[in-house]
Amino acid sequence: MELKVDQDKCLGCGVCVIACPVNASISPENAGGHGSKTTETIMMVENGFIKLFSVDKCDKCGTCQMFCPTEAIWLE
C-alpha cells in the first residue's frame, strides 16, 4: 500500500497533517499546537494545498484518510 494525495481534491484544510500519528511523533507540536515547518513529517500544507514529504515514514494506518473531508488523501 502506498499513500497518495490528489491536490485537485484537496481543500488545504490541513486536518490530515494534524491527525497523522507519525507526524505527531516526529514533530509533537504539530498535533498539539504550535506548528512544525520541518519536511521530516510525512505531509504538510504548502501554498494552500497538501504535499507529501517523507512518505517512506508512513505506517499505513489510514488516519489521514479517515479525517479527510474530501478523499484527497488515501492508501492504495
Binding site: 490541513g14 494534524i18 504539530n30 498539539g32 499546537g33 506548528g35 512544525s36 504538510m44 500544507v45
Partner: peptide
C-alpha cells in the same frame, strides 16, 4: 480556532 501546523 485551530492551532496546529498553522493558526487557523
Amino acid at each position: 480556532k485551530r492551532s496546529a501546523e498553522e493558526d487557523r
